[in-house]
Structures are given as C-alpha cells and as structure tokens.
C-alpha cells in the first residue's frame, strides 16, 4: 500500500519537469551550461594553447584550490554564515606542515598536525560566532588576521622551502601529494579533491548534520524551535571550512615546494565567488557540493582563458568581480520573484 503511494508521488514529481526540479540542480544545469560555453569560447580563441595538455593540467590545479576551499565555504554559506579566514587558515596549515618536516618530524605527524590546526581554526571561528555572538563576517575577518599573523610569527614572515627538509626521501614523498601524477597524467591532488568532495557531498545531503545545516541556513529560528542543536551544527560547518582550508594549504605547499605566510591571500573571496557562481545561495539554505565544483571550474577556466588571451591580471580582477555581482543579482531577482 505505502509502496504504491510512494511510487505515485515520484511519478507526479517527474511530471512537473523543470519547474519543479530542486533549485540547486536547476542552477547546476544553468552554470554547467555557462561552463561549457566558456570552455568552447576559449578553445576557439586559442586552440593550441588552451587545449594543450600542460595547460589543462595547469587549470585543474587551479580548480583544486578553488574547489577545496569552496567546499568548506559551501558548508558555511549553506548554514547561513561565511568564512573570510579560509585563506589565512590555508597559509597557517602550509607553514605548520613544512616547518614540522624541516624540524625532522615524520610526514604523517606533520600532516595530521596541520589538519588539526585547520580544524581547530574552524572551531574557533564557530565559537566566536556562536558562543561569543560576533557576526560571521566580523568574526572570521578578525580571525583571518589572527591566523595570518600566527603564520607570519612562526616563520618570521619568510617563506620556508622544502629543500631544507633533512631527509631527501621525505622531501620527495611530500612533493608527490600536491605535485605527483598518475601514469595517465592526472594529478593526485585532483583525485584527492574528487574523493573529499564526494565525502562532503554525502555528509551534506545524506546525514543528519547535513540536514541540520540546511535547516539552520534556511530558517534559524524554525530550526532551533524544531529541537535542532543550532550552535553545534554551525560550529561543525565552520570546522569543515577550517579543515578544508588546511587540506588546501598542504597541497599548495607540496606543489610549490615551499610554504609562504602570504599564501592564499584573498583566496577566500575567490572561493566564495566560485560557490556563488555555481549556485550556492549567499543567503543560506540552498546549494550543494556539485554547485561549488562547477563554480570552481568556471573560475579556473575563466582565469586561465583570460591569461592566455593576454588580459592583464588587473582587468581579470575587474571582470571576475563584475561576473560575481551579476550572478548574485540574477539570484536576488529570482528570490524576489518567488517570495
């Protein structure tokens, strides 16, 4: 009996076609189309350069950074917050892992410590927002300086190079993480991004905490009154962001064979842009990992394509900013119409 009912309703859902599809999915299709068009445009403009294998790998490496930071920001944005400290947490994690390796610590310990630091930085963001009551924008802006400052303090403002790691073997092992590739040329980091993305997508859509994140972002009051532990849920979202930032920091330090205290400066803004371009709502309650990946690809391809076509980095900034505001304006319009 019940089975029949479920079947019937699913069929009804299917009948509703595009208009009744989940908003996230609709947006993913929209931004996905934009992505493909952008790809074709750049491929036509500079076929030899843009489609060259080295260039495509170059793009994917850029996308890896945007994606992993973007994952964390997706959690924050969906639960109605934001994380401006992601770029700084990323630099701090990079410094810690390389510093520890230079000091002779084993690879696994250094990585776990860096990840832990990232996680804790997220928890601290969450605490300052949820328990101390600072608004997310200001709290994470302030914590950005705290983490960036700590990163600078640890290395006295100077980069640390992996060539100073005592053991050549560990040097090589560490490099493989971010710079190594599979026999077919796909970087390991792409694999890590994909696997991590799948894990987070499952958490967001299939677990209790994931549902709570959506509920908090969509209507915090209603979520609290529904017996949801809003404080814990939101702290979790920030900790995912901090953790993601530290993964990103380790991969970038590995690929560049050095950790810079200035690494990831402004990346949080680009990761937010990627998430929002892909269809994550900047007002909370809507968006998923797929949206963010598509947005990250758009950002990566856009940057690379503009580079290849000789557009100066200053103009790139202006163009990306313009696209971001336009994308948000389109979303705001849709929101107004549906209310």
């Amino acid at each position: 009996m019940t089975n029949i009912k479920i079947f019937r309703s699913r069929k009804n859902d299917a009948d509703k076609s595009f208009s009744n599809m989940s908003t996230e999915f609709k947006k993913a299709i929209l931004s996905g189309t934009g992505l493909i068009l952008m790809f074709i445009l750049f491929a036509l403009l500079k076929p030899e350069l843009f489609l060259a294998k080295t260039n495509l790998i170059n793009i994917t490496q850029q996308i890896v950074t945007y994606s992993i930071l973007g994952y964390g920001l997706t959690f924050c944005l969906v639960c109605g917050g934001t994380d401006l400290s992601a770029g700084a947490s990323m630099a701090l994690a990079g410094i810690i892992v390389v510093k520890m390796l230079v000091a002779g610590a084993p690879l696994w310990l250094s990585i776990i410590t860096a990840l832990l630091v990232g996680f804790v930085s997220g928890v601290l963001n969450g605490i300052s927002i949820e328990i101390l009551g600072v608004v997310p924008f200001i709290a994470t802006l302030g914590m950005q300086w705290v983490y960036r400052g700590l990163a600078n303090v640890l290395v006295n403002g100077m980069p640390v190079y992996t060539t100073t790691i005592p053991s050549a073997e560990i040097q090589e092992q560490f490099y493989v993480l971010g710079g190594g590739r599979l026999p077919n040329g796909i970087p390991y980091s792409v694999l890590i991004t994909a696997i991590y993305g799948i894990i987070l997508a499952v958490i967001l859509s299939k677990t209790r905490i994931g549902r709570q994140i959506y509920a908090c972002g969509s209507n915090l009051e209603a979520a609290k009154l529904s017996g949801i532990n809003a404080v814990g849920t939101r702290i979790f979202a920030y900790s995912v962001s901090g953790f993601s930032a530290s993964i990103c920091g380790i991969l970038v330090a590995s690929r560049l064979s050095s950790a810079q205290p200035t690494a990831g400066m402004g990346y949080e803004a680009e990761a937010i842009a990627a998430a929002v371009l892909g269809g994550v709502s900047n007002t909370g309650g809507e968006g998923n990992i797929l949206n963010t990946i598509i947005g990250a690809m758009m950002m990566g391809i856009l940057r690379n394509g503009l580079n290849l076509n000789g557009v100066s980095s200053y103009w790139q900034q202006a163009i990306i900013g313009f696209i971001l505001v336009s994308a948000c304006a389109v979303e705001a319009r849709r929101h107004r119409q549906s209310v």
Binding site: A215, S218, S226, I228, S281
Partner: peptide
C-alpha cells in the same frame, strides 16, 4: 518553516 526547503524536509525537520 524553512521556506526555501521542500515539503519532505520541513515535515521531517523535528
């Protein structure tokens, strides 16, 4: 209600 979420989500929210 969480207006931006669907029926199933809201019914199961608590």
């Amino acid at each position: 209600l969480a207006l931006s979420l669907d029926v199933q989500y809201n019914i199961n929210m608590a």
